[in-house]
Amino acid sequence: MTLDPAERRELTLALPPRAFSYFDTRAQAWRIEAGRFEISAGFSVADISQSAMLPMVDSTIAV
């Protein structure tokens, strides 16, 4: 999405469960740990303008 200077628009970004997972070598499965994940957006890592916390439950996901 391209914006003009000072223009604002709402953006919806769908992240699949795999974006929050890691590979558990003992279980040989992709897992998501329970907890809160912070999603941040901005011009750069030094200029974050928006963030949100996403709660997750412990689960195993199919690949």
Score class of each variant (00 low, 15 high):
R9L: 05
A46C: 01
F37W: 11
P17G: 10
S59N: 01
V63S: 11
S59T: 06
G42L: 10
S59Q: 08
P16M: 00
S21L: 13
V57K: 08
A14H: 14
T25A: 14
E38K: 04
R36C: 13
L13M: 02
W30F: 05
R18T: 05
E33L: 01
A29I: 05
A29S: 11
R36N: 15
A19S: 15
Y22M: 06
S21E: 10
T25R: 14
L3N: 12
A34M: 00
V57H: 05
F23L: 08
I48G: 07
M56F: 14
M1Q: 12
A14Q: 12
A19H: 04
S49P: 00
R9M: 11
V45Y: 10
I39H: 01
V57F: 08
R31E: 03
T12N: 11
S49Q: 09
S59R: 14
T12D: 09
I48R: 09
Q50R: 12
A52K: 09
P16R: 01
G35L: 00
T12I: 10
V57E: 14
A6L: 06
R36Y: 14
Q28P: 04
E33G: 04
S40A: 11
D58Q: 12
I48C: 06
Q50F: 11
A46H: 02
D58K: 09
S21N: 12
D58P: 12
R9A: 13
I48S: 09
A34G: 10
A29R: 08
F23G: 08
R18P: 02
R9G: 04
I32R: 03
A46S: 08
I39Y: 06
S49A: 11
M53I: 05
E7F: 04
M53N: 11
I61Q: 02
T60H: 00
E33F: 00
D58E: 15
F20Y: 15
G42S: 08
E38T: 07
E10C: 01
V63H: 09
V63Q: 06
M56R: 13
A6G: 05
I48A: 08
D47G: 04
A52T: 14
P55N: 03
A52V: 14
M56P: 04
T25S: 14
M53D: 08
Y22S: 13
V57N: 10
R31Q: 05
M53F: 06
Q28R: 15
I32T: 08
A19D: 04
T25K: 15
R8Q: 15
D24T: 02
A19N: 08
A52W: 02
I32C: 09
W30C: 00
D58H: 15
T12G: 12
T2M: 09
D24F: 07
A6T: 10
R31M: 03
T2S: 15
E10H: 07
L54K: 01
P17N: 14
L3C: 07
